[in-house]
Design a protein around this nucleic acid. Structure first.
Lengths: 127, 127
DNA sequence: CGGCATCCTCCGAGATACTG
DNA sequence: CAGTATCTCGGAGGATGCCG
């Protein structure tokens, strides 16, 4: 199968597939909070700074739908809902750690580049 | 062993830092198109299916600001504008390839999980 | 406790037209 | 060719209130 030059598509590209899964605003942080095992809804809510109930619920539902997270309900009073990474979800962890490593190593450079860009902004033109 | 429970923050977490850079809708695809070397604006525009001029320009500007992409203007008539990954930008490639690998390996499982979820939806309850 | 329903706001991003 | 400029609309996402 030959690759046409115009073949880069949102729908086909694997890059997009991953990002489709983890690139939502809160998804990565939620996965991160599940990294060390089972944890309750409220606990996630408390640990992720600034997330709203709505977004947490929505994000968890997404992750559950994608088969990355398992949801276990204990119908006591009050109810207990626990979330865990599925085996599939756990396969993601090393890859996310790598991304984290990239950031640890290079993010300062990005920040610096931004500062310089924001300062001058016009010096791209050769004089 | 307990860190501050509220320690996961959008602003602090490295995961977020990477995603802040590559998670915009088109960013990954643009980087992807630059993977093999210098390329002109119009060429990128043609290669990425469905991207608008506005979003392409915006995405490229972001990437330039982040120091990941270099923009070279040749003020001829008509003008030629070429984009290249910077060394910093190139450091990202292996990591993105890894994400791609993850998708190649596991995306079918995700798709399957979605189908099952969308079918039943009620299977989480133990009966 | 762990949601879902509702309302509301803001801005991401597509479409279109113009320019150096 | 490689962008800006402007308008518009849908939907992301916060706030609030109710429920099992």
């Amino acid at each position: 199968m030959r690759m046409k030059p115009s073949d880069i598509s949102l729908k086909v590209c694997s890059y997009s597939h991953v990002l489709e899964i983890i690139s939502d605003k809160w998804t990565a942080l939620v996965i991160y909070s599940l990294e060390n095992g089972t944890i309750r809804y409220g606990e996630i809510n408390r640990r992720i700074e600034g997330i709203s109930q709505k977004m947490l619920t929505q994000t968890l539902k997404q992750l559950e739908r994608d088969g990355l997270v398992n949801r276990k309900v204990t119908p006591s009073v009050p109810p207990i809902v626990e979330y865990t990474l599925t085996p599939l979800g756990e396969t993601l962890i090393p890859y996310m750690k790598m991304l984290k490593d990239w950031a640890s190593e290079h993010y300062s450079a990005v920040r610096k580049a931004r500062e310089e860009y924001d300062l001058g902004g016009t010096e791209t033109i050769v004089r």
